[in-house]
Amino acid sequence: MTEFFIATRPALAALCLAAFIYKLLSASNIRHDPATIALLACIASEAIGWTLTIPSVSQRLDLWLGLPNLSALLMRLLGAAVLSPSLLAAVFTWSNPAAEARRKTSFAVGYGLAVGTAMIGLWIAAAVDTRHDTFLVQNLNRPLVVIYLVIYELGFAAGLVALVRFSWSYARRVDDTWLRPSLRIIALGSGGYLVVCINQLISIPARLLGYGHVRWDVLTGISIRLGVVGIVTGLLLPSIAAQSGQVRTWWGHLRSFRALDDLWQDFNQAFPEVSLFDHTRAWRSYLSTEELHYLLSRRVIEIRDCWRALRPYLSDHPRDAPEDISALAAAAARSLHTALAARAAGEPADEESGASHLERLEVTDLDEDIEWLTQVGRAYSAMRPGRLVTTTG
């Protein structure tokens, strides 16, 4: 299993790096959002820490700097002096009023600095020159090393305990579809990390009493990997869910926009004065959900205006219009196709013609109107042999 655990380290480092980049790009107004800053620090420390666990990276770093086992110190500093205080800062920001959150966050930063300073001082004083994979086994007879490890494990565990308590408590209070499972995943991930901390703390007296802890290596290896995946996934899940929902909304707008294309182009050709925009737009306009929704809404309004202007050319209004919405859309599409052809052929207009039941003027909600006209647009495209040539009649 050791080879497997070592082989998964680059994947975990890549996961954390991808999560950091995603959070950095998706967050807005970062400078004024302490919780987002704390989460970015948390995920960044994980990405760097897991990178340092890769043997080739840590060995090259130690060799380049000429300081044995420096990568082990940096890895542990990232856990106890950066990750844990960042988790505390995030929890304080989420669970307290702004003024109290700032005060407690300052405590978390001071706590991280104190833990980091103590670890660096003990590391220098102990002057340990062995690789970190055998750090505990080979140096437990040295009090400074024992103190160093205890400070590291307790410092690392502090933020995890706070995150477990906060996540599990709030998960029972919220009703949000994605936030509740996210909090539970965070709690389970933090619990996985805590298993590792507890195991290391128990290993110290166990080793002093002559008991080995090798049999726990598989458990701790699995726990720490579940921990990082759980924390990263839980922290990002609400944001990813919101982003995926926005993508679905954008895709729906784009499909409706494209479904109306043929109908709108024929209308635009027949009544160019109605259109506010030319049909050619910069491709960037279609990447924003808000911009695309505006263009779609504008297209619907223009289609409605053109439909109203086309009334004099519409055929007799059916008295028994179909009740099925798809059949009604097909009937409306046929009516519009015939009216546009009549206008293009220069047939006389009936200025007394009024609104048709096929227009569905009773629809007042914009989203419902978009849905209805999208069906009309699809039906119109299905029967449209080619672009109509407009003549003034």
Rank of each mutant, 00 (worst) to 15 (best):
I202W: 13
V389S: 10
H213S: 13
V376A: 03
T53K: 12
L149E: 15
F92A: 13
A355R: 05
V389F: 04
Q138V: 01
V214T: 12
L226Q: 12
D365G: 02
I124R: 12
A81H: 07
S190E: 09
V195W: 01
L88G: 10
S190A: 15
F166G: 08
R184E: 12
W216G: 03
L361Q: 14
W178M: 09
A81L: 01
P205R: 02
T391V: 09
A339Q: 08
R225S: 00
H253V: 06
T364V: 10
L77N: 07
G346H: 06
L314H: 01
R207N: 09
V247G: 01
G159R: 07
R173V: 04
V300P: 00
S275K: 05
A327G: 00
V300R: 02
S315G: 14
P97T: 05
S239C: 01
D175A: 13
L52K: 06
D278K: 06
G79F: 11
F267I: 02
E290P: 01
I43F: 03
D266I: 04
A330D: 13
R142D: 15
I6T: 15
W307G: 15
A19F: 08
G189Y: 02
V150R: 00
W264P: 06
I30D: 07
L77E: 12
R378W: 02
L77F: 00
V218D: 14
F166V: 05
Y380W: 10
H357F: 05
L373K: 00
R180A: 15
H337G: 01
